[in-house]
Nucleic acid binder design. Structure first.
Length: 458
RNA sequence: GUGGUUGUAGUUCAGUUGGUUAGAACGCCUGAUUGUGGUUCAGGAGGUCGUGGGUUCGAGUCCCAUCUUCCACCCCA
């Protein structure tokens, strides 16, 4: 019985039209990654759950796709365990999960191959990741991340290079309506310190991060619930009131955080990063220092940043930060890394909404061979071989069909030329090359056909 | 995970307070045109109304469940 096929929630097919556009984005990013000296890496779709759990916070753990053990997954489960709820049962019947991001598997790779990799290790990785989130616009359950990370150095040169890559990628994509927000977990620590919320750092960040959504009033009332005094809130208010350019913002904050060692360190790091970026020849006007930026992923410890489109409603399209001890969880201490992740799917949605994809005139085939009958098809195959040997993307309509159908095929597929092959052409060994757009056609020897099509490439 | 929303032809959508045989546009196929695509004209095919139950003499229309879509939370690329 025929079944109506369907896709799992939050997943999509990408047809040829979409793939042309997706590849355009991916190729652009990859090109920049390579230019900055990053090496390719791929890791499996699935990881052992022990690698994934506990790295993304409680929220993240809930969003992991777990893979049911193969075979009789209940054979080792006792009756009492069955009744103890999913938290007890889950680890017994599921040992693997789909990867949630590319950074944690990368850290796992570095630890497992620590004696082979040369530090600092720069790698890029373009792969799908999966999150059991509830889908909505710009949010999918399967989506691609495009990561570049540098691991094995504390240098703030890395942060600057990643910022530079962001600007280079978006420039290449002709996308300008974005803003980079930058901050530092150490600045947040400093702020929480002077606000007396050091012990509630996690909650402090989460609440502060909501500022632009729920407003200062609600943020303050939530913070006072956490235990912030009126005086602390006044300090915070003066921090949030800081305005001006990045340098003056940082200087002003430095006055308030003067007694916080970690806070002052954070400020210095942001300053140095911006300075390095200028030395690399980039303007910093796309970058805005934002003290309320928190970033969810719990492993960040230093500089953090995210990129958002400014002219449309769209979530973060690029994000990242420094993590001082991600490999430590897997037993390799003292290795600091910093990375960035481009969300291809959201970049796609953004470019689509803003109509920024270039006209994709260059489809694959340059010419379609159109034989009129079986005899002509034999001739067509010989010509096809010559065309391809000359490096010309070409195809033949694979079965005898009316010219109308064959030309219609070329038309719909956007193939710019057709080569008509009938009895007259075979007799003369001169073939009718027709330019579809204008309908103009002429007869040429195959050598001249090749020459014509090759000249077209310029 | 919480609250809401959506689903009718390949696509975008009509479909009245429940009432004969569910429509349109575009697309697709065939022909006008047996050596010429796009334009035009003529004709044609294509629907378990997301799925499964229920109410009713009668359900695309009302009720329940489920899946899916989109949206707001949570969180995030």
């Amino acid at each position: 019985m025929a079944q109506k096929p369907s896709l799992p929630k939050g997943t999509r097919d990408f047809g040829p039209e979409q793939m042309f556009k997706r590849n355009y984005i991916i190729d652009t990013i990859k090109e920049v990654f390579k230019k900055y000296g990053f090496m390719p890496l791929e890791t499996p779709a699935m990881e052992n759950l022990s690698v994934l759990t506990g790295k993304y916070g409680d929220e993240g753990d809930q969003l992991l796709f777990r893979i049911l053990n193969s075979g009789d997954f209940l054979s080792k489960v006792s009756d009492t365990e069955l009744t103890e709820g999913y938290k007890t049962l889950s680890p017994k019947i599921s040992e693997k999960g789909l990867k949630y991001d590319l950074t944690v598997p990368f850290a796992r790779y570095v630890v497992m191959n620590q004696h082979d990799v040369t530090f600092p290790f720069k790698r890029y990785q373009i792969q799908p990741v999966w999150r059991a989130d509830r889908p909505q616009k710009g949010r999918y359950r399967e989506f691609y991340q495009c990561d570049a990370d540098i691991i094995g150095t504390n240098s703030l040169v890395c942060e600057a290079e990643l910022m530079a890559m962001v600007q280079e990628v978006y420039k290449k994509l002709s996308f300008d309506a974005y803003q980079i927000s930058i901050s530092n977990r150490k600045i947040l620590e400093g702020i929480s310190e002077v606000c007396g919320a050091k012990d509630e750092f996690g909650r402090f960040c989460v609440i502060l991060d909501k500022l632009d959504k729920i407003g200062q009033e609600k943020v303050f009332s939530e913070l006072s619930e956490v235990g912030l005094t009126k005086q602390s809130l006044q300090t915070l208010e003066s921090i949030l009131a800081i305005e001006g350019n990045n340098t003056s913002k940082l200087d002003e904050l430095a006055n308030i955080l003067a007694n916080s060692e970690v806070g002052m360190l954070g400020i210095a790091e942001v300053k140095e990063t911006l300075n390095n970026l200028s030395l690399l020849g980039f303007l910093t006007d796309k970058i805005s220092v934002d003290f309320t930026l928190a970033r969810g992923l719990s492993y960040y410890t230093g500089i953090i940043y995210e990129v958002k489109p400014t002219s449309i409603q769209m979530g973060t399209i690029t994000a990242g930060g420094r993590y001082d001890n991600l490999t430590g969880i897997f037993g390799l201490q003292g290795i600091s890394g910093v990375g960035i992740s481009f969300g291809i799917d959201r970049i796609y949605d953004t470019l689509e909404e803003l109509n920024l994809f270039p006209n994709s005139d260059a489809k694959y085939s340059k010419v379609l061979l159109v034989p009129f009958d079986d005899e002509a098809q034999k001739q067509a195959l010989q010509l096809l071989g010559q065309l391809r040997a000359a490096g010309i993307a070409s195809e033949v309509f694979p079965e005898p069909a009316k010219m109308k159908k064959q030309l219609g095929y070329a038309d719909k597929k956007g193939i710019p030329y057709v080569l008509l092959i009938g009895s007259e052409e075979i007799k003369q060994q001169r073939f009718t090359l027709k330019y579809m757009e204008t309908g103009k056609q002429d007869m040429f020897s195959i050598e001249d056909v090749i020459k014509n099509l090759q000249e077209e490439d310029h």
